[in-house]
Amino acid sequence: MSNLFWLSDEQMARLRPFFPKSHGRPRVDDRRVLSGIIFINRNGLRWSDAPPECGPPK
């Protein structure tokens, strides 16, 4: 994956109010997760088939 992040800083700022708040457990990088979801949907893959840059398959 040559470009890990599919969303710009402006796009992430617009989406940030919709993310859940952290309650004790540290949150993962939201941009990384959303970029992984976009990559999976665009390429018709399962999460377990995604590159490791998208995060763990669980």
Rank of each mutant, 00 (worst) to 15 (best):
M1V: 14
M1E: 06
M1Q: 10
S2H: 11
N3P: 00
N3F: 02
N3D: 15
N3R: 13
L4Q: 14
L4E: 14
L4D: 09
F5L: 03
F5A: 04
F5Q: 08
F5Y: 14
W6N: 06
W6I: 00
W6V: 02
W6F: 14
W6G: 00
L7S: 00
S8V: 06
S8G: 07
S8Q: 08
D9C: 06
D9F: 04
D9L: 06
E10T: 09
E10L: 07
Q11Y: 06
Q11N: 05
Q11P: 01
Q11T: 10
M12P: 12
A13V: 05
A13M: 08
R14W: 12
R14V: 14
R14M: 13
R14I: 05
L15Q: 04
L15M: 07
R16E: 15
R16V: 05
P17Y: 08
P17H: 12
P17W: 03
P17Q: 04
P17K: 02
F18P: 02
F19G: 01
F19T: 03
F19Q: 13
P20E: 01
P20M: 09
K21T: 12
K21Y: 05
S22A: 14
H23K: 11
H23Y: 14
H23I: 10
G24D: 10
R25C: 03
R27G: 13
V28M: 13
D29R: 09
D29V: 08
D30F: 11
D30I: 08
D30S: 10
D30C: 06
D30T: 08
R32G: 08
R32P: 00
R32I: 02
R32T: 13
V33Q: 09
V33P: 00
L34C: 10
L34N: 01
S35V: 01
S35A: 04
G36F: 00
I37F: 04
I37Q: 04
I38H: 01
I38L: 10
F39C: 00
F39H: 14
I40D: 09
I40K: 14
I40S: 04
I40N: 07
I40R: 14
I40E: 00
N41P: 01
N41S: 05
N41M: 15
N41I: 15
R42N: 13
N43W: 08
N43K: 10
N43A: 06
G44S: 15
G44K: 07
G44H: 12
L45H: 01
L45W: 10
L45N: 09
L45C: 05
R46G: 02
R46F: 01
R46S: 02
R46H: 07
R46C: 03
W47T: 04
W47F: 00
W47S: 05
S48T: 08
D49H: 08
D49M: 06
P51D: 10
P51H: 05
P51I: 02
P52D: 14
P52A: 09
C54A: 09
C54V: 11
G55V: 04
G55Q: 11
P56A: 10
P56T: 15
P57E: 02
P57F: 10
P57D: 11
K58M: 12
K58Y: 15
